[in-house]
Design a protein around this nucleic acid. Sequence first.
DNA 1: ATGACGATGCACT
DNA 2: GTGCATCGTCATG
Length: 198
Amino acid sequence: MVGHISRPGAEARQGEVFALEPVAAARALIGWTLTVDGVGGVIVETEAYHHEDPASHSFSGPTARNAVMFGPPGRAYVYRSYGIHWCLNAVCGPDPGSAVLIRALEPTHGTEIMRERRGVEDVRQLCSGPGKLCQALAVNRALDGARLDAAPFEMAPPDREPALVAGPRIGITRAADLAWRFGLKGSRFLSRPFPQAR
DNA sequence: ATGACGATGCACT
DNA sequence: GTGCATCGTCATG
């Protein structure tokens, strides 16, 4: 079973989000539902990567790997991490070379398929990390450059403006001080907790 | 041709 | 909390 997730006006709102600069886009994407062939869930964690950001793959200019980042917004940029995992980004921004890393989903669609693909039962372990969610949604190199507004992708906006939390990005060494990681406040499906605001 | 380096996840202490 | 598998990508010779 593959339930559609479309809502009225979703396409226009999607175009608006992907036109934003990456920090704004990363914030705006929290709460959207993302599926691949009907399997997926609600985006609860993102990170922004700006073209002038030393932590971004695009920082040193176009290469074979990051070419999609320099193309039109609204496409998937998929890359291999640590030779093992895949990671999914949404290309965004008015300027070339910006993207939003999708870091975690709250599983809502096709959870049994995700359990099979991940080999774990716990719903909190299905999509709580960029590599995990790509395994759960069967995202790989074949989807690098694919449009996010067409099959097999489908995206639907949140009904209400979600409450956000922000913090430093995970797993990077450069520009590690920037608070460009965003999460759905109170979500139990994050890859890691956010540092407490003090 | 070769070497350094990860936008990670998992097992283990 | 720490250790590390594993390999594509990119810079260098």
